[in-house]
């Protein structure tokens, strides 16, 4: 019995050792999806299947098209830009982690002027959607997901 407990403790210590890097993540994979939502003919982009049920539960739009799909490999305090339709730019920067959430600073600029700025604590491996800007008889939605590596 003592031997068995020793074996369990040994494996537990190995598990703790390998899981240690998971607690000290320094790289963030940010995924930005730019979506055009409108009341046009029913359409859902295949790349949006996961998020669409959530959006449909809130919005009345019938068409969801993926305009841009950009992955950003970021370090903390690294600012990255994503060009958006209508002379807009999305600036995104992960600053640190608070528990299992990534702290992001997100800015949307239009004609080089900041029109929207927010700070969020995004759950690791989860996403947030920011929307509202008018574009081509519809609206733009920005789905931002982040995962710490």
């Amino acid at each position: 019995m003592v031997r068995f407990i020793k074996i369990i403790l040994f494996f537990l210590s190995i598990a703790c050792f390998f899981s240690q890097p998971a607690l000290a993540k320094t790289k963030i994979l940010t995924h930005v999806k730019v979506i055009h939502a409108s009341t046009g003919p029913r359409y859902v982009d295949p790349g949006l299947k996961k998020i669409i049920p959530e959006l449909k539960s809130v919005f009345k739009y019938t068409s969801y098209r993926l305009l841009k799909d950009q992955r950003l490999d970021q370090h903390f305090h690294q600012k990255d830009r994503v060009n958006l339709p209508g002379k807009r730019t999305l600036i995104i920067m992960p600053s640190d982690m608070e528990g299992k959430r990534i702290r992001y600073q997100i800015t949307i600029k239009k004609n080089k002027r900041s029109v929207f700025q927010t700070r969020v604590l995004l759950k690791n491996n989860s996403s947030i959607t920011i929307g509202g800007p008018q574009f081509n008889d519809g609206v733009l939605l920005f789905n931002i997901s982040g995962s710490a590596k």
């Binding site: 929207f116 995004l122 996403s127």
Partner: peptide
């Protein structure tokens, strides 16, 4: 999915929505 700690905009209309099923956060 996200906790919004601050919002700064020139426009007065801002909404923060949380979906029922997966508690997905939407800022409008």
């Amino acid at each position: 999915s996200a906790i919004v700690t601050s919002v700064d905009t020139d426009f007065s209309s801002v909404m923060i929505i949380e979906t029922q099923k997966k508690k997905h956060t939407i800022i409008w």
